[in-house]
Design a binder for these strands. Structure first.
Lengths: 135, 135
DNA sequence: TGAACATATGAACAACTATTCAAATATACT
DNA sequence: AGTATATTTGAATAGTTGTTCATATGTTCA
């Protein structure tokens, strides 16, 4: 049709060094004050990604079921595999990810590794999430 | 030696119809009681997926930033695009997903659509998550 | 009516992810 | 030593996802 370019061309600041504290509103924004307010309250990037990674970890049905199962007590890998009806290898992969995020921990007893939740925040999170879903 | 819990047998469930279809404990599981306990406490599949979808939605940095920004008040699409420094189309796509999960809602005022959080659970979730991350 | 604006939508593509398979550790028992 | 169990790890792959681009829809105002 008519447009051959983006409406209201992005006014990229000439050689603007992005990322850091460059607060150039490079697109038209209607409420610049709110944008800056949001920027000033934004959490550090590292925390943001940690948080996102945690939610992403809980965002998979298999991992979520693992966490829910563990909220009732520790279980070993083959128990979880039987519960989830997926291979033990798959469970192990998921547990590794959950462990790297400090969501679960394990203890060894002989050949068996018992997994459990790392702290209470996790089950609180799930409980709160269920509240939202069930409302 | 101490606990000889009769580890297992690859046992086809004798009374084997659980709620779902054919559930067979096709792997050895060491603590069958715990597996069954977990099964009995498991939330319905639909709720499980709703919950997972919600966490998955929060598991993306862009969407998470949107939610965090909106927890301080409503913003329109172009504000959010300016804040996130991504295209308005991308923001719109993400907002659609958040809206389909009842995490955000919008109201129209003329040409402008103002987005805000749908309920308080969302910001509580994020706050609780931050607690975990920051500990 | 039509231009301009604000947002939504569909398609496409790269990037990511969850699972499986095969092979590797690690521990216990004989 | 060796065998069996319990779990981990790496590679490969099918499936999913976030963004961009192009276009469509809906609204306001001249």
């Amino acid at each position: 049709m008519m447009e051959n370019k983006a409406p209201n061309e992005i006014q990229t600041p000439s050689a603007g060094q992005d990322k850091a504290s460059e607060e150039v509103c490079w697109v038209r924004c209607i409420h610049q004050d709110r944008v800056e307010e949001a920027r000033s309250r934004a959490v550090p990037v590292k925390e943001l990604h940690q948080l996102a990674d945690m939610y992403k970890a809980l965002g998979d049905p298999s991992r979520l079921r693992i966490v829910m199962a563990l909220s009732q007590g520790e279980m070993c890998v083959c128990d979880l595999a039987a519960f989830l009806e997926i291979s033990e290898s798959a469970v192990s992969h998921q547990l590794r990810r959950l462990r790297s995020l400090a969501l679960v921990k394990n203890r060894r007893d002989g050949k068996i590794l018992y997994y459990s939740l790392d702290d209470d925040h996790v089950s609180s999170l799930v409980a709160l999430g269920l509240e939202h879903v069930r409302e």
